[in-house]
Design a protein around this nucleic acid. Structure first.
Lengths: 188, 188
DNA sequence: GGTGTATAATCGAACGATCGTTCTATTGGT
DNA sequence: ACCAATAGAACGATCGTTCGATTATACACC
């Protein structure tokens, strides 16, 4: 186990724990044992308790997603590079498909009502970003929307499939397949 | 609220509840309030308690999935009909994309270890069934595998996307799109 | 450089509330 | 009068949270 020496390490560890047990399934006992910190120490860092920990995790994930997935689409590179960088960002963000739970943790159970609108906004912003750069390639709006949804759907579906089957290699294959489909449908 | 008058109604209601709150997020208080049955009455029907209720829900879901999604693939109809019936089954099984939680409930939290292998088997069986009927259409094995994974990935991804955005209409569009892609890739 | 002290960070014990479960008693139909 | 089905009260265990007190760290002062 990686020793926790900084606040960042702690949030990283909390992310792992919430991913493994889900929000409702994560007890303070579990948090204490897996972080190596006493219950009261956790409250020292997060006076708001479990909910504040979840917020910190969500904010970290949100920043990572923006940095790794969204910002490549807003860069100055050409279209294929944008897509390629986004897919590499996806691979980092989801740790080769092995961290497919990131969405579920906040979309299920007690945290659902809190984060639902934020997740929705992120998904729609992601889609809009894709639509925009696809339109810039000369594709009409309706088709750009359809292709954008297809891309996101394929990525999310690949995550679900990889977790369900335990075949995480399939995630990388799926990402490569997405890149192929995009170049075939848009650049030709 | 639909009044519960039979065991089947009860399991249906339990399914809804577990879907809404997740397994760990569903308390006996919630179960009692939402079913209209006292805590002890629930234990009369399910002596094994919460875990037995989850088992009953899983078995129901498992039967439904077999009936609605898998059995069309094993029927005597021609290929396009098999696929079309499967997609209609998917639509029924997931209630037009509005019941996308079915997998998550059992793949997250305390129930994870119990149902992981069963979910894996179901996913692989689904995939194998698709591979088989696609091969029968004269497609070589490797390509059949790739197409089968694509189909499942698109369906699961469409569920995630629909739930994340709240746009459940997109689920129906995605299913139609899958049908189109299949016929284009395989029947031509 | 050693020393005192403020404060950052830790901890286990204990709180009230709620958890899943069981007990005992009562209802409603046949 | 028998039994399937119901219900509320109460159980021990665990939940998230708070409390009081101890240890580690950093910095000013002699």
């Amino acid at each position: 186990m990686v020793k926790i020496v900084s606040y960042k390490d702690l949030v990283d560890k909390l992310t792992d724990i919430f991913c493994e047990y889900g929000y409702d399934g994560t007890s303070l006992t579990i948090l204490s044992q897996n972080t190596g910190l006493g219950r009261a120490s956790l409250y020292y860092h997060f006076p708001g308790g479990k909910e504040e920990m979840a917020n910190a995790v969500y904010e970290k994930i949100s920043r990572d997603f923006t940095k790794l997935v969204l910002s490549p689409l807003a860069s100055d590179h050409n279209f294929p590079t944008k897509i390629k960088n986004m897919l590499e960002g996806i691979n980092l963000f989801y740790n080769n498909g092995q961290r497919s739970c990131l969405l579920d943790v906040f979309a299920i159970g007690s945290t659902k009502d809190i984060f639902n609108s934020q997740i929705k906004n992120a998904a729609l912003y992601w889609k809009d970003s894709l639509v925009k750069i696809i339109e810039d390639e000369g594709i009409d709006t309706n088709r750009a929307i359809m292709l954008s949804e297809e891309i996101i759907i394929s990525i999310e579906g690949a995550l679900v499939f990889a977790r369900a089957t335990g075949d995480f290699e399939s995630f990388n294959r799926a990402l490569e397949n997405i890149l192929l489909t995009i170049t075939k449908n848009i650049l030709d």
